[in-house]
Design a protein around this nucleic acid. Structure first.
Lengths: 332, 332
DNA sequence: AGATATTTTGGCAGCGCTGCCAATCGAAAT
DNA sequence: ATTTCGATTGGCAGCGCTGCCAAAATATCT
């Protein structure tokens, strides 16, 4: 079993070595079409001997499907997106697809540029976060003959496939939970909303629901940076400095909420009696803190799995709502 | 500006529309070779008009470099690997490369299979975690004419390029820190070491150094699962149940350490007086906890950046040690 | 055995693009 | 005006594989 693929062993060489035609080798390798056991063994022996690695670039060009799935995601630091990738990758690998990705940094223009360069690889599908895209992006995606999957948000009109849940409903449910628990002076601590449209949808519905419930938002503190534990800590500190009498705070997500929780821990603020905390996402860590974090669990991994399955099955256009689950922890 | 790329506009169609030859279009689009401003404008107008998206599959087959970089990583749940991806992706995107990834789940056999299917795309480079690979993987990688980058570990013999730091040194430094601080009954709480060879290297050196320092490991608790906050909490609980008199615990990483810290918080164990805690990785969250976590900061993002830069520059084979930094927090 | 199905096989034309080379063009030089 | 030389340009042969089709081999049936 020698490997000499220096400048690439080709299918033709394998064919010659096995004493069969090129198409026969191709059929054997893809296990497609008919051939006898004997020829198959001869071919496989030659493949083994030469260390042949099929060239999918050539294969794709000659046939059709690239079996490449492009992920154009806002960030790799946010667990939301890596969880979707995680959910999708196993399914894709099992079906012979390859995942390609690019990071937009929450920038619609960068997204457009990246979608363009992704399309150059003629992917089977492109997966994007949410519905808000630049005009050019939409145009390209419509023109391209690949599938499009918008994940993590279903509040809008899907281009083709969409898998996620309603961020509006999430904000609403969070607000209702707070109201039911009896909190009336509710604040919000969030990260840069211009960049995260899904967080801003949640916030909008949250406020609206609070208002309708007779307890309009008491105050808000938006940190002009990405979501992080540290920013959540700082955010809560600033909010409390300005409005000390809030009795509960809704955070843009669990990272921020943990920061707030830590602030309480180190300043002797009793949770939830002095201050209640509600997060969003349902991170694992929130289940291991001294008090379990109250939060809204989102089915991120499942979203990735379902999205990948739809692509693999070449399912018809549809929107799938996977919902979410309110976790009543011990912080609110 | 109409987009009708239904079954794919080709370069030939653009050429016809612009009234120039195919090679001219190709040259203009790649900004390579010479052409007049006038022809360039005509070509770009045609491209715009037809909504032409170059086909990189065909381009790659015809020329050479795929500008595809394959990442074969153990997991997407572990921030270590996503940070490397993050560091690499910006650099790669800037230079027209695309990142492709696949997840091995810490399984060497799966790694082998994934490397094989990655190689079918004729990537410019393959990035792997660490040095421990199946024989077949090594064979394939050597035979392939692509660059190979092993990241996150430099304790071993590199196949080609390696960027990371010494896990042995990390374990040693952690142990020395504990000894200097005066801890003598030191325990270890870790996750499945069979799967994470880098963590096991750290652990081995840690134990050795402790022994040499006259304070051999007091006890250990290995949780047979992935690293997580919850498993760290449980691990410490079990360790203390068996060996209550340890005065410090070294965790396999910050997730585990946080779990341990939370256990202390909720059981009135004073940190670091009753029990000192040392983590590993330098996660952001450790800087926002009530007490800053003592840990070893690893340059994960930088590793990704440097690795990508080496590939982009087609640098000669080399091993780059980016070191690490011991963070003296408030928990040890 | 002869004829008719059926399975197996090989040849070869592309897939869309790039690289090479020769042809053409234009401007500076004689 | 003629020559020279570099800047532009187009034609076309592949890159390695798959899909189609006809040929060859084998099996099945009168």
């Amino acid at each position: 079993m020698e490997f000499k693929q220096q400048e690439g062993v080709t299918l033709a060489e394998v064919a010659k070595a096995a004493g069969v035609g090129e198409s026969t080798v191709s059929r054997v390798l893809r296990n497609h079409g008919s051939f006898t056991t004997k020829t198959r063994d001869r071919v496989l022996a030659a493949v083994q001997h030469l260390g042949y690695v099929p060239n999918r670039i050539a294969g794709t060009l000659a046939s059709a499907g690239s079996r490449l799935v492009a992920f154009v995601i806002p960030s790799l630091s946010n667990i939301v997106f890596t969880d979707v990738l995680r959910g999708a990758s196993a399914t894709l690998e099992d079906h012979g697809y390859q995942a390609v990705f690019a990071v937009t940094d929450y920038d619609p223009e960068k997204e457009e540029a990246l979608v363009a360069s992704m399309l150059a690889w003629r992917p089977t599908a492109v997966m994007l976060a949410g519905y808000e895209h630049a005009d050019g992006t939409v145009k390209m995606l419509r023109a391209a003959k690949c599938r499009v999957v918008e994940v993590l948000d279903i509040d809008g009109v899907a281009l083709d496939l969409a898998v996620g849940f309603s961020n509006h409903a999430a904000g609403r449910e969070s607000a209702n939970f707070m109201l039911q628990r009896g909190y009336r002076r509710i604040g919000y601590v969030g990260h840069d909303l211009n960049r995260d449209t899904r967080a801003s949808k949640r916030f909008a519905s949250f406020c609206e629901t609070l208002g309708a419930g007779g307890a309009p938002l008491a105050d808000r503190q938006i940190h002009p940076g990405p979501s992080s534990v540290e920013n959540g800590r700082i955010g809560l500190e600033q909010l409390l400095a300005r409005t000390p009498d809030v009795d509960a705070v809704y955070f843009s997500n669990d990272d921020m909420a943990l920061g707030g929780y830590f602030h309480c821990l180190s300043h002797g603020i009793m949770v939830p009696d002095d201050l209640a905390i509600l997060g969003y996402n349902g991170l694992d860590i929130g289940r291991a803190t001294p008090q379990r974090l109250s939060t809204l669990l989102t089915p991120r991994v499942t979203i990735g799995q379902v999205a990948a399955q739809l692509v693999v099955d070449d399912a018809p256009s549809q929107v799938i709502d996977l919902g979410f689950e309110l976790i009543e922890g011990e912080t609110a």
